[in-house]
Design a protein around this nucleic acid. Sequence first.
DNA 1: AGTTACATTTGGATCGTTCTAATCCGGTAA
DNA 2: TTACCGGATTAGAACGATCCAAATGTAACT
Lengths: 349, 349
Amino acid sequence: MPSQIPIGRKVTLNDIAAGCDVSRATVSLVLRGSPLVNKLTRARVEEELRRQGYVYNRAAANLRRRISTSIALVLNDLANPFFAEFAAGVDETLAAAGFVTLLGCTGESPAREQAVLGSLLEHGPAGIILSPAEHSKAHDVLSVVGRRVPLLLFNRELGGALPEFAHWDQLMLDNQHGARLATEHLIARGHRHIAFFGGHHDSSSCRHRHAGYVEAMHTAGLRTEPYWRIECAPTRLDAAHHTPALFAGALAPTAAVCYNDAVALGLMLGLNQRGLRPGRDFALTGFDDIAEAALGMSPLTTLSVAPRERGQQAAQLVLQRLQHPLAASRRTVAPVQLIVRESSCPPVA
Amino acid sequence: MPSQIPIGRKVTLNDIAAGCDVSRATVSLVLRGSPLVNKLTRARVEEELRRQGYVYNRAAANLRRRISTSIALVLNDLANPFFAEFAAGVDETLAAAGFVTLLGCTGESPAREQAVLGSLLEHGPAGIILSPAEHSKAHDVLSVVGRRVPLLLFNRELGGALPEFAHWDQLMLDNQHGARLATEHLIARGHRHIAFFGGHHDSSSCRHRHAGYVEAMHTAGLRTEPYWRIECAPTRLDAAHHTPALFAGALAPTAAVCYNDAVALGLMLGLNQRGLRPGRDFALTGFDDIAEAALGMSPLTTLSVAPRERGQQAAQLVLQRLQHPLAASRRTVAPVQLIVRESSCPPVA
DNA sequence: AGTTACATTTGGATCGTTCTAATCCGGTAA
DNA sequence: TTACCGGATTAGAACGATCCAAATGTAACT
């Protein structure tokens, strides 16, 4: 029984081998289910493995075999439900493939990103999934990651040019098309004065969404006033604070395409404080379709990006890359889907 | 320059040693900043390390030193914001201590929990932080984890008795006291007929919260009717569906202590459908203080559990355990804090 | 010159596994 | 008898680091 087993040292192949009078090599063969070993000895060895409570030392095995069974996942912030769902999808798919997820959070700091990547690399992951911090530069990432271990960029571009020799894949959301869909939807509802609210222009996803908005507006022959572009941090609180700026210009908008759901929810609060009912007196759309979007005072029209599925997809892409290390690097753009809810009302007559 | 470095093989200590005419051992000393090595040779070696783009192989080092620099974090579901915040806190603290987080998700399935634990253990974590799946049994966890690697239980009890010889620590939330606070608050507001709504009685956290509710009621000399205890799955949807059951008994409650915030938000929806305005016609409290609690139609009175801080605390506890492997096992109960918002109105006259 | 002291450096064993190239053995063919 | 075969097993060298004891070189002191 387990209580007979010495508690001091880890059980190794040698212990098992000694315990049933075979060689280390034979035990190793048993462990890996080789057909070479005799049925009888296999049974004896398996019994001994159970008896001593052996646990496989994958680190030692991987060292010898010069392989790795882990993937590093580096994100800005797990507390963001978008990334949390993404991480859940990644882990789920990796686990199914026998890989283990090494987690790292950067908190939007390029410096911490460097540190985290460095630390994770020492554990020898087979690949990396990275959602870069805001001002992270391609050159810096390259200098710490090197060209040996494959990298998948998710969600954001890196500053500076991507090194063409490195096989870095990309998984991006169709930000521009999504924002265009939202804008077209508001236009179809009858709006003519539409603002773009929230986000910072130095974020690539924000730039792309803004481009989609401009594209839709101009295609429809509508003007975009500069004071209809309100920048703010992508948080509820900051969005609520910046609400007055929307109505400070000469021509007040009747609707806003928001950078993301958090901003949209904050804008709703801000509108309420001005006595405007979102979804009645003012129309707005979000981006991400986070859980809270469907609830709240006025259910939010938004773009679903299916973060969990993106996580699964990211994991798949990395696993494929591991099988074809020399394949050309690939850029995947995941589609987004417009979810129409009540917040995108027609303009008040 | 980096392009001169062969791309085929990983750079090892031997390569560096050969590259600057010293022994492997000396390079190793340089890496670890030993004062033994001469300033001059140190400089030469460091230059060579940079030149060849060396990355430390922690797996190999840990094998030799018989130590580990990783901690396994096993959760039900990262997509749950409570656990996501918790994980963020854990990773933050572990990273600061030089550890790396091995992630695993169980999806509330004891079978997957076994599999995930087994897989993570093969990577040799120094410790484990486990938030058990719903019906997970202590005996099963023990049989896969063994008594070698220290375990910290978070948030839930395990079924069956804890093995006393294993040094398993616990970090629990003060569920009972929290529910008692919420109930006392409602009583102080003037309510006499208070229900306990949501959750399943086979979940230990639900039992504890219910116990706190009963305790407060009885201490105040109030009765608890059996039909004031409505069980349902801890989701918004199921809570909304079970709302009518609250009013099916002889004496209708004027307030409800909810199992958690998700349930409370679902109950709000259900109340709305009955034409009752939560926070006006009916009072309710939640548990967890998730982000949505402060927003919504009627901001929710709830208990803040500070999940990120819990994560930091969990990591601290494990790190302490690593330093004192033989210390007596410890049970920590984290305090919770009542956050009074508008949902806990006085009863209608 | 011989001894001691000190600062540096190093060879070789080691961690727990896998891999390669033997080896062993009973049976069969030449 | 010898050679050979195929199935089962194994010794021993890896993998990339660390650790220990021992070696080296230099300077200082009898």
